[in-house]
Design a protein around this nucleic acid. Structure first.
Lengths: 189, 189, 189, 189
DNA sequence: CACTAAACGAGACGGTACGTCGCGTCTTTCT
DNA sequence: AGAAAGACGCGACGTACCGTCTCGTTTAGTG
């Protein structure tokens, strides 16, 4: 990280990322324009292109460099933990810049596949943390051996995203419903 | 429908929708351009704009007018039905033009909210059919009262989409895993 | 001419040529920019590029479409005619937009050779008119047979341009000097 | 001159001038770029700018530092001398890097007037040498008093340049024609 | 059966943004 | 200290599409 920071001059870097976030929140991903980002950052277009080969990469870095996803505190109880995961997922999708941008961003990964890798790298530790929660529950026999914890996380993420994008938006009742279902699905046979 | 068809000349209509589908499969939604669609259809740009106010609307109509989602035949057994639903969802997302286009398309609904309505209208009967499957299972006591069949469908759709879009793609093992989990979640308490 | 005008829509044509001339006189050929021409004409850049493939072509047409070089009235006396030719050449180079632009313009013909042809086509009739003057003098035996009138015109044009470009500029005395020399060179042996 | 040379590091100087000439012959003056010159010379751009304030100045120095114009040997006969002058002028314009570059270079003197002075300083001795030829002829009564030798040189230079730039190029016949005309113009009345 | 009015192909138009190039300045790094 | 390396703000390049807008020309449907 230090070497990456030092290779990059860093003078304009922060300004560009800040301008990117500003554009993301004000006009959204689709309407975000490299030209406007550069203008708002007081920077030449070429400077943006020097460091980021595509809009997707620029936005991924802007979002990952500012989003911290504080770990979900394990309570020792599966139901509480799953409920926390679901709630956090909903909050993430609904309230954070990254959550709101994610769906559109992911579609652009076709233009720059490395952006996907960069995003997954950021997601990695978070995902691992959440997995740890479930593995610990499995250790406590709260999850049967034949249930893949990765699947559970994908169900949470996928279902929350789906509700957030296609229907009007996930509400509190939905959090409880989804939590209930997952708990039911993980009862030992 | 007849009146709509007659109001619309119909001569160029089919050509435009066909060209839209051709572009969708060859270059994808993002790179699809109204200019190219018009050119490929041998049509003036204005003719396209006369009937479809946006790319999203054009694509929704092109896809819904050619995609038929044959109903899932009920087997009387919940597991078989759910497995069929999951399999069909995967096939839809992976192999059909509409399934592949859906994620990008949905992101554009911000530009033209009526397109969302038009898509949901197409999805309506399909969704209803799938719901019927689950309600029938509920009638057979295979699903407890406190489990919302709508949630189950959202879980299937969301999870399949999520795997299809963020990770490499859903495989056969995934279909079984997801089916198992859903069956587990719907066992009467 | 009518066909050319009708092929071209003509709505914005005049505005672009006018803006081109305005830029030529205000900032000169080198600093003339297609972007500024378009802006000043209230026109999109693409509209300029649609009709003119290069700066050279645009400028050639702007200049030829507004420059008229009224014919030199023959006086029946070689000296008077040559003096008129020289004086007109000087005036052309020093005072007209085209004359001032010519040297730089010609250098750009390397980028678009057809521009050279277009300029020569404009020069053609003028050159022919001047040649007629000299041929008529040859008919009156004022020029010996072994002197090529074309050479005389090239000497006038070349020398005037050379003085105008490399030294400070041709003055009145120069006109007399050059006229005298040419008359001397054309005395019958 | 020595002090100037010593003030300049000299290490990179030669490389820069060499790279400039290479670019001149390979892509021409217009497409010559300080950036490429620096790169080809293995030198930072700033080093180029430290010593030459403009492209025109750099090119003038590159050309004058390599072009030597060997004096025209006087033959004692005006016709021979003039013919030699014309031939040399044609050769200069057609075959030498400087001759080919001159027209474009001169147009750029508007951007850096001192470059003009620098070029004229190089031309000075050559011009003086040529003038001496004609003055010597005047001393031999081969040129009448009322003919300005400077004018003759300008006619030669101007006419040759004009033919070289606007028309296809001066040929051998042209050299004889021009020589003949000048001799005719300088016969004593 | 003409006649008219809509729909049409064609594509020009004013724009916005693209991604690239070169300018001339300024800073960092290394020798 | 001085040079290479090259980042930087800037401005222009030439291209691609946007969505709107005339233009004649079909092509029905009506009088």
């Amino acid at each position: 990280l230090a070497s990456a920071s030092s290779r990059r001059n860093g003078r304009s870097h922060a300004a560009i990322l800040a301008a990117t976030l500003a554009q993301l929140t004000s006009v959204g991903y689709q309407r975000l324009t490299i030209e406007r980002v550069a203008a708002e950052a007081g920077v030449g277009k070429a400077t943006v292109y020097r460091w980021w080969p595509s809009k997707a990469r620029l936005v991924v870095e802007a979002l990952t460099s500012c989003s911290d996803f504080p770990p979900v505190e394990p309570t020792g109880d599966l139901r509480s933990d799953v409920h926390a995961l679901v709630t956090r997922a909903i909050d993430f999708i609904v309230n954070t810049p990254m959550g709101r941008t994610l769906p559109q961003l992911v579609d652009d990964f076709g233009e720059d596949p490395e952006a996907r890798a960069q995003l997954l790298q950021w997601l990695g530790p978070i995902h691992a943390g959440h997995l740890a929660l479930l593995y610990s529950a499995a250790g406590r026999q709260e999850i049967p051996h034949n249930v893949d914890p990765v699947l559970i996380l994908d169900i949470i993420a996928g279902t929350v995203l789906y509700r957030g994008v296609l229907s009007s938006g996930p509400d509190t009742r939905f959090a409880d419903q989804l939590t209930d279902f997952i708990i039911a699905g993980t009862r030992p046979a």
